[in-house]
Write a protein that binds this DNA or RNA. Sequence first.
DNA 1: CAATTTAGTTCAGCATACTGAAATATCCAC
DNA 2: GTGGATATTTCAGTATGCTGAACTAAATTG
Lengths: 136, 136
Amino acid sequence: MVAFHEAVGASLGVTAVDQRALAVIMGAGSVSAGELAREIGLTPGAVTGVVDRLVRAGLARREPDLEDRRRLVITAVPGAFGDTFAGLSKAMAELTDRYTPAEQAVIADWVANTIGVLREQTRILTEERASPPSRR
Amino acid sequence: MVAFHEAVGASLGVTAVDQRALAVIMGAGSVSAGELAREIGLTPGAVTGVVDRLVRAGLARREPDLEDRRRLVITAVPGAFGDTFAGLSKAMAELTDRYTPAEQAVIADWVANTIGVLREQTRILTEERASPPSRR
DNA sequence: CAATTTAGTTCAGCATACTGAAATATCCAC
DNA sequence: GTGGATATTTCAGTATGCTGAACTAAATTG
């Protein structure tokens, strides 16, 4: 999965951080540059580069905020990200079809729970790193 | 999953490439530096750095090859990598216990097939990039 | 045992992406 | 309106990791 993720990034010319940023953008619908900076833990200056690369890759757009003209609203380009995953989506859909509805329910439940576990473990690892004796 | 992977890397002071290298080492049991270079697509010079970081993180060891003293045998330190995943392993084991053996079989089958799909899609993405109009 | 090949490391040069600070534009309070 | 706060960009400086070439050591060939 990680290898696939890296291949996607290389194919689009975006970094791992950029992809996480895109996930944030898609999750929130749209965000400002400042919100994005806070969300992914970068300085505003770095976010400019992140958004530049996403825009260049055709994955996101910068649009003016009509209510506050200092702000930019960053949105994902509908479909653009999906295109990259078209092959994966198709293959996964075919795989899913090979299971009965009951089996699919079990798998879906397990996947949801696994996501929860990973989220929790990521949080623990990240917090562990914030406080104790520095490693490296 | 990708976020967890990144957190592990940050926690250990190793890069994403380093972790892929470690996966290769563990998969093969042990490899020489040259084999590792070919496997992960880096020059021998870069592999020195990769192995340096893995050794510093306590994840791998450099050992002399008794048969060919130019060579180094690189092995994973047993358990060291597992320690980092102790929390994840425990949580996943507990999750697994919540399913019946039949359900576990379905999940295992689906996971195996999903890995196959991801491998295949990664290969396609990687190859696509090798030939056609350059993207960036 | 000399000449060539192979394994790995070291090092200089280069690319990339981040930080922090300065600059620009806009909003808001008085 | 004027003054201060806020949003984003630009830019110089820095860190990291890669490539390619030179170097050392050991194996292989004739």
